[in-house]
Design a protein around this nucleic acid. Structure first.
Lengths: 152, 152
DNA sequence: GATTATGATAAGAATCATTCTTATTTACAA
DNA sequence: TTGTAAATAAGAATGATTCTTATCATAATC
């Protein structure tokens, strides 16, 4: 489950460029953490990246992996899959709906939309298995956080 | 941020019905945990539900809240918002794409779809704030887990 | 209405993911 | 080459979630 060498190299170039542009240090660990993720197709978590890297860099600390993943996310080089919350959030609304999630405060709002309810699972997705549900997640800055930001 | 009384009552009826149909006990704690979530609009986490209930049921244990939320999810009365993972998963693919997530094994697969890329944020969503991204999450049973299930 | 079996709860310990603290090391600019 | 701010390693700390076990309550049966 590895990404094509060319794509990885392009990603590595983007990484170096982003580091230089931002004046952040290109450490061995940081480089290899990004390389590991950029070469993986299966959306690993921090532990998985850590244990793979441990073979090549035995002294690496798990905290370094976490720190750099946060760093890479902040600089837009990687994303966290899903909603990026620190705890599970629950919903008693069983009716088909979608979510607006504020990336600042984590507020989650339900919304209904006939047009979005109409979208069908494309073949590109059903190729991976039997679909059970399809939902749309909109990420953005909520009204409250938007106002806060203007004041600052 | 409370749900209309009528809706809550309908949900409570569904809850009692589901409990009886499944022959599970209708305990005070279970009932109030569901009532609390069914009355909330803001997708609380377990801690939040716990602290609200603590006022009414001082002896309630946090574990009971977790246990019953899992229970309610299993019986389809509530859902976990997002991908319901136990750890954060990362993605170096910054090209616009969508996800197929297996609800059995947690495997996450990227897919591309011109038709899904074309969907726009509806007014019902942008009402909550400034949208930054829109993505589709398909949940289902992946090929591997589907085969396993057939064998059993 | 009382009895009882079984599932549910409370309490606290345990586990797992993630972050913090601090002393040490390293990248890289001068 | 050297100075210095940034990054790292190690391990402790935190916070979410789950487990263990003794006790309790629901609901079926008498």
């Amino acid at each position: 489950m590895r990404i094509d060498r060319e794509i990885v190299e392009k990603r590595m170039n983007d990484f170096f460029e982003a580091c230089h542009k931002r004046n952040v240090k290109v450490t061995h660990q940081r480089t290899e953490i990004y390389r590991e993720l950029a070469s993986s197709e299966n959306h690993p978590d921090a532990k998985m990246i850590y244990s793979r890297l441990k073979k090549r860099i035995p002294a690496i600390a798990l905290d370094t992996v976490y720190r750099n993943l946060k760093f890479l996310e902040k600089y837009g080089l990687i994303t966290v899959v899903g909603l990026n919350q620190d705890s599970q959030r629950f919903d008693a609304n069983i009716r088909k709906h979608h979510h607006f999630v504020c990336v600042k405060c984590g507020r989650i709002s339900d919304f209904y939309s006939a047009s979005l309810d109409d979208i069908v699972v494309p073949e590109e997705a059903s190729r991976f298995g039997k679909p059970l549900s399809i939902n749309v997640e909109v990420k953005g800055i909520c009204g409250v956080c938007g106002k806060k930001h203007k004041k600052e």
